[in-house]
């Protein structure tokens, strides 16, 4: 991470393909972004390390944005109506979660727990809004990608529900 106290602000930054950028390229939300754009994203995202079983975020807390897994795996869990804990998904390197919070004001719909020691990257709504203000072209690209991701997930959910109802019938 660039240290604002010691780095030279006037020095020209050279875009390079770091580990973070290589992972960002795999994330559909950042699909089609140039290396320069990805460098800008890398500058604003927050990198966090979680130990195994540590809670990343809890269900019903305010959602700030999405997380991208750089290393390790994450369990997305929830509680059913009969108070049983259930694992909705297990995500690995390059996967992302919590993206709905980038556009939605509502609380987190599930709990995310580190399945192993993991290295995550957090991209939050405030940063997205900042990009939309300062660099609308880049912001619109991200928003369009985000809409694609959410619509794909909606289609997949619809298909799964359809299959379930067909099996019931």
């Amino acid at each position: 991470m660039k240290n604002p106290l010691w780095s030279n602000i006037f020095k020209k930054k050279k875009p390079t393909d770091s580990h973070v950028q290589l992972t960002l390229k795999q994330v559909p939300v950042f699909d089609g972004l140039s290396t320069r754009n990805l460098t800008a994203i890398e500058d604003i995202v927050h990198e966090r390390h979680f130990v195994k079983d540590e809670i990343i975020f809890k269900e019903s807390t305010p959602g700030l944005g999405m997380y991208i897994i750089l290393k390790g795996n994450v369990s997305i869990t929830g509680v059913t109506s009969d108070n049983k804990s259930v694992e909705y998904a297990k995500l690995g390197q390059g996967d992302f979660f919590g993206e709905v919070s980038l556009i939605d004001e509502s609380d987190r719909s599930a709990t995310a727990i580190a399945g192993s020691d993991c290295h995550l990257m957090a991209f939050f709504k405030v940063e997205l809004m900042d990009i939309l203000t300062h660099s609308p072209k880049l912001g619109n690209k991200i928003l369009l990608n985000l809409a694609r991701v959410i619509s794909t997930r909606l289609k997949t959910t619809n298909l799964a529900l359809q299959k379930k109802s067909e099996i019931k019938d």
């Binding site: 106290l5 975020f57 957090a122």
Partner: peptide
């Protein structure tokens, strides 16, 4: 934004968000 990022990097995970 960089000062904010540096400050937040020091916050424990439980209080980060």
């Amino acid at each position: 934004h960089l000062y904010r990022k540096s400050f937040v990097a020091m916050i424990p995970n439980a209080y980060f968000e």
